[in-house]
């Protein structure tokens, strides 16, 4: 079990805010700058003083010991990179395992497996500051994942990743973890990210308000609301929603060829 819930939170920018993330779910929260995404993740991680408003598996986080909470909820916050940049890849993973009493051999095995999982095997001795933005993100992720948390919170992990292939590759890692049972909550300022993986739930946040939530394609169909918020709807979804309006299609088709056949056949 690894569900997270917030009830009646009133802490800027939130007012009487409530949200629920079910056990074993793959969630994406999208909002523009200032919508409260980072603050929401911080509240969920127990980094803010919330006074019995956040529950982890039905228990208020204040009632869970700090070290236990740290072990259960992993944080991938890009701002943590600066604290890691002067470490080598190997040292950062070793530090992460410090609080666990693993035998040297077992520790080495874990590091080896993790580096192979994130595909950074040849750069063990490299300083994190010398890695590419994509590799740095994978290390930040590995440092948390190696502690085997039950929930992983990721604050705009793809923000600095320009290549679509790299974005997809990172999301593939997350999807793999989700399929293994991890609950994942990730934020983004772009709806395009929705199309790059199989998120189970999409949440739209604006100025501390939860505007929309649900199965991703259903949420993306609400084009007028999303446009008002300044969010760009992914091309194929936008095209299908508009074609639906003119009764040229009756569903969202994400593959170009299929859509073309549907329109002109």
């Amino acid at each position: 079990m690894s569900s997270l819930a917030i009830d009646d939170l009133s802490l800027s920018p939130f007012k009487n805010f409530a949200i629920f993330f079910s056990n074993h779910s793959f969630n994406l929260i999208v909002g523009t700058s200032g919508s409260g995404k980072t603050r929401l993740l911080k509240a969920l991680a127990g980094l803010l003083k919330t006074q019995e408003k956040v529950r982890y598996n039905r228990t208020y986080i204040e009632k869970i010991s700090f070290s236990k909470l740290q072990g259960k909820i992993g944080l991938v916050f890009p701002e943590l990179l600066s604290s890691l940049s002067s470490f080598t890849v190997e040292d950062s993973l070793k530090n992460s395992l410090e609080s666990f009493s693993y035998e040297k051999k077992e520790q080495e095995e874990k590091i080896k497996n993790m580096l192979s999982f994130i595909n950074i095997t040849g750069k063990r001795k490299k300083y994190i500051k010398d890695l590419s933005a994509f590799e740095q993100l994978k290390i930040l992720f590995a440092v948390e994942l190696i502690k085997e948390p039950e929930v992983l919170l990721l604050d705009e992990p793809l923000k600095k990743i320009v290549s679509k292939e790299e974005k997809k590759s990172f999301l593939k890692l997350l999807e793999h973890c989700y399929q293994k049972g991890l609950t994942i909550i990730m934020t983004s300022s772009s709806l395009e990210d929705t199309m790059l993986s199989s998120f189970t739930q999409l949440y739209i946040l604006d100025h501390g308000n939860l505007i929309l939530k649900g199965e991703p394609l259903e949420v993306l169909k609400k084009d007028s609301i999303l446009n008002k918020l300044g969010l760009k709807i992914p091309f194929m979804v936008d095209l299908c929603v508009k074609l639906e309006y003119y009764k040229m299609v009756d569903e969202i088709i994400l593959e170009e060829e299929k859509l073309i056949d549907k329109i002109w056949n």
Partner: peptide, 11 residues
């Protein structure tokens, strides 16, 4: 260099 990573459509 890549100045639009922080902005949404309206911005």
């Amino acid at each position: 260099e890549e100045p639009f990573l922080s902005f949404h459509e309206k911005e």
